[in-house]
Amino acid sequence: SKWSPSQVVDWMKGLDDCLQQYIKNFEREKISGDQLLRITHQELEDLGVSRIGHQELILEAVD
């Protein structure tokens, strides 16, 4: 995926409302499409996504 960080942010805006709070962290870390495809629970935790349910929603959406 050749998504830029801004495309990742646009994609996140289409996800569940409960995930919108994390967008600024993804933006700050400039998460690209390639990074998103390989993202782990630990990396999500580092991005402030501490709730497992929220991590799962992001990982499922990526899949």
Rank of each mutant, 00 (worst) to 15 (best):
R28P: 01
I52F: 12
L59N: 03
D16E: 08
W11N: 04
L15G: 04
G48N: 04
H54N: 04
D16M: 04
W3T: 00
Q42Y: 01
G33P: 01
E29K: 15
S32Q: 09
D10W: 06
I58C: 01
H41L: 08
G48Y: 00
P5T: 15
L47F: 04
G33H: 04
E43W: 05
I52K: 15
K2F: 14
Q42I: 05
R38L: 07
T40I: 01
F26Q: 02
W11M: 00
D63T: 13
H54L: 00
G14S: 14
T40D: 07
E43P: 00
E56P: 03
E45Q: 14
L37R: 10
K2N: 13
I58A: 02
C18E: 11
L44M: 06
I58Y: 00
D46Q: 14
R28T: 13
M12K: 02
E56Y: 07
E29P: 02
S4Q: 03
V62C: 06
L59S: 04
I23V: 14
N25G: 10
P5I: 08
R51W: 11
E27C: 06
V49P: 01
G33I: 07
E56V: 10
E29T: 10
G53C: 13
I31E: 02
S4R: 06
V62S: 03
G53S: 15
K13R: 14
V62Q: 02
G33Y: 08
Q21D: 12
G33R: 04
K2Q: 10
I52S: 13
D16N: 07
L44K: 02
I52G: 12
S1N: 15
G53H: 14
V62F: 01
E56M: 10
K13E: 07
L15I: 06
G48A: 01
E56N: 13
G14N: 15
L36Y: 00
Q35I: 11
E27V: 08
R51K: 15
D34L: 11
L37T: 10
L37V: 12
V8K: 01
R28C: 09
L44R: 03
D17H: 09
D16F: 05
C18K: 08
G48I: 00
I52T: 15
E56T: 12
L44A: 02
I23L: 10
D46G: 12
N25K: 08
R51T: 15
F26P: 04
R51A: 15
I39K: 05
V49H: 00
Q42V: 08
L47E: 02
R28K: 13
S4Y: 05
V62I: 13
H54Y: 01
R38S: 13
F26H: 00
K2A: 08
P5L: 05
Y22Q: 04
S6F: 08
Q20C: 07
Q20W: 11
E56I: 11
E27H: 07
S6H: 13
S32W: 07
C18S: 14
R51V: 15
V8L: 02
Q7K: 09
R51C: 15
I39Y: 04
S1E: 08
Q35D: 10
D34T: 11
H41P: 14
G48C: 03
E43Y: 06
Q20Y: 09
L47H: 02
I31D: 00
L15P: 03
S32A: 12
Q7L: 03
L44H: 01
V49L: 04
Q42G: 09
S32R: 10
V62H: 00
Q21G: 13
C18P: 08
D16A: 06
S50Y: 13
L19S: 04
E29A: 15
D17N: 12
P5C: 15
Q21L: 08
V62A: 07
K13A: 09
V49C: 07
Y22A: 01
E29V: 11
L19N: 04
Q20M: 10
C18Y: 01
I52C: 10
S1K: 15
L57D: 03
E60R: 12
N25T: 14
I39W: 03
D46A: 13
L15C: 05
G48R: 02
V9T: 11
D17G: 11
Q35H: 12
D16P: 13
L44Y: 01
P5S: 14
V8D: 02
D17S: 13
S6G: 13
E27W: 07
Q21E: 12
E29I: 08
D10L: 08
D63L: 10
I31Y: 00
E45W: 09
H41T: 14
E60T: 13
D10I: 08
H41S: 14
Q55N: 00
L19Q: 04
D63A: 14
V8A: 02
Q35L: 07
Q21M: 11
E45I: 12
K13V: 07
L57F: 05
D63V: 09
V9G: 11
L15S: 05
Q42M: 07
E29W: 09
M12E: 03
V9L: 09
S50F: 10
H41F: 06
G14P: 00
R28I: 11
L44I: 00
H41C: 10
L19K: 05
L44D: 04
D34P: 11
K2V: 11
T40E: 05
G33Q: 05
M12D: 03
T40Y: 00
K30E: 11
D17P: 13
T40R: 08
V9N: 05
E29F: 10
H41I: 09
K30W: 05
D16S: 06
D46F: 11
L15R: 05
I31T: 03
G14K: 08
H54S: 02
E56D: 14
W3C: 03
R38E: 08
I23M: 07
Q55K: 13
Q20H: 15
N25M: 14
I58G: 00
Q35G: 06
L44F: 03
K30A: 12
C18W: 00
D10Y: 09
Q21Y: 06
Y22L: 01
W11Y: 06
K2D: 13
G14D: 11
G53P: 14
L19R: 03
Y22D: 05
D34H: 10
Q35K: 13
R38W: 05
H41W: 07
I52P: 15
I58E: 05
E45A: 14
G14V: 01
G33C: 02
L59P: 04
D10F: 07
L19F: 05
V8Y: 00
W3G: 04
W11S: 02
H54P: 01
D16G: 06
T40M: 01
Q20G: 10
D17Q: 12
V62N: 02
E45Y: 15
I58S: 03
L19G: 03
D10K: 10
G14W: 00
E29M: 13
D63S: 15
L47P: 03
Q35S: 08
S32G: 12
